[in-house]
Computed example of a mutant assay.
Amino acid sequence: MGLHVQLGHHLSEKCYNPQPSSSDDFVVIDVHGVHEIALDFCGSASAQIRYKQLLRTHWYPATTSDPRTVATFTLLEHFHVLSFESKVSAYEFYHSLARRNNNAGLLDIRDRYSAFMHMVHEWRHLRQLRHAGRGHDSAGVNATTAGELVVQCPACPHPGKNILQGWEDKVPLSLRWKYALFIAIDANFRLKWKAVSSDNVDLSLNSVWVYFVVTQSVVCLQLAELEAHELEAGTNVSLHTDISPSRLITTGIDLQDQQQCLKLDIANASLHPTDKQKTTLQTHITTLQRRLDAWAHIQELYMPAVSQLHH
């Protein structure tokens, strides 16, 4: 009884070697709910491997080996858009689907939430690769380089796209300020989520292909190399004799790290610290504040608009 699906053939064709799915407890997650169906794969010699039979039906399998759970392409596309527009969590979305089958709670519904999360994770990864055109590279997905999946900021200057190619030779020196790239440091309170898990429990599929592409030390090295190249080419536009734009950025990153360390020291301080501990902590606070004030003074030189934010 119930729905019985045969894969590997058109609706009008008959399969002469049907092979039931393992334990015959196949689960399909769709926009209409979480459904248990009977499903047969095609076992003929010319048949595709099982997960490919599912993909040809627009069903995304939770695993490529002995799949027992799938999500329809329609569902994955629906949740992908919904997660951005409504900010609904995957947990709320999945259990809302489960309630469409059994809102009274009288029947047991197979829990496929973990499998659903795996499929969503892989689906978003594939969409990123598709958006970047990685499927058309003859070298394959593994040839993707660091940062290649990043969506570039349309407001930032990109030679040949939104500014002239070779603008350095075509724009007068008095107008070059229009082509400057302003880099600001802002607080990102969601960035701490990146450190919640690790690849051991939640494997990243594109850790260096999107935004987190380099470490802090690599950033500092690249800025130093860029400054050396500008000095050699005679295009350096430093407004301070001792502090260059790259030095301003690296110092700001270093100060941010020191702030985080200081917060940890304050949080870990005992309820009844000794006079020596109080002195050490206060010295760190005072020293850091002086460095921040000095950095902010140089920042106003390179970013005049920042001074207006303090008034």
Rank of each mutant, 00 (worst) to 15 (best):
R99Q: 06
H240L: 01
L149D: 03
V141Q: 15
L248Q: 06
E85G: 03
D275E: 07
S246T: 05
S238G: 11
K194G: 07
E225N: 11
G133V: 02
V34D: 07
T241A: 12
L76S: 11
P159G: 09
I185K: 10
D24E: 11
S244W: 03
L264T: 11
V213G: 02
T287Y: 06
Q152P: 10
S174F: 05
H58L: 15
Q256Y: 06
D202T: 00
A155R: 11
F84K: 15
M303V: 15
G8K: 07
T241I: 02
V27H: 14
H4K: 14
A45P: 07
A155P: 05
C15H: 10
L271M: 09
L39V: 01
T215R: 07
L231R: 15
M119Q: 02
H272F: 11
D293T: 11
Y94M: 02
H240E: 01
R290G: 10
S307M: 09
D265S: 12
G2S: 14
H240A: 01
R112E: 10
H310W: 03
R127A: 04
L223F: 15
G147C: 01
E122C: 04
G135F: 13
G43V: 02
V210P: 00
H125R: 15
S207M: 04
R56F: 12
K263S: 14
T250A: 08
C42Q: 14
D66G: 14
A228H: 09
E77S: 12
T283Y: 00
K161V: 12
Y179F: 10
V214P: 08
L107T: 00
L97W: 00
Q165M: 06
S46D: 05
S83C: 13
I249E: 01
K52M: 13
A132L: 03
N142I: 15
Y211S: 01
V151S: 09
D265E: 11
L149C: 07
K276Y: 07
I249P: 01
H131P: 00
T72Y: 12
Y60I: 00
A224T: 01
P273M: 04
G105H: 02
I109E: 04
K52T: 12
Q299D: 10
P67C: 00
T63P: 04
Q259V: 04
R110S: 05
P18C: 06
P20E: 07
Y60T: 00
Q19I: 07
I285R: 03
M1K: 06
S307C: 09
E232N: 10
D169Y: 07
K192F: 01
D275Q: 06
D186M: 10
H284F: 05
A305R: 15
W177D: 09
K276T: 11
Q299R: 13
D137M: 13
I266Q: 06
L54R: 12
H158Y: 05
G33E: 01
T145P: 03
E77T: 04
F73M: 14
T251L: 10
L301D: 07
K14P: 00
N102F: 03
K170L: 04
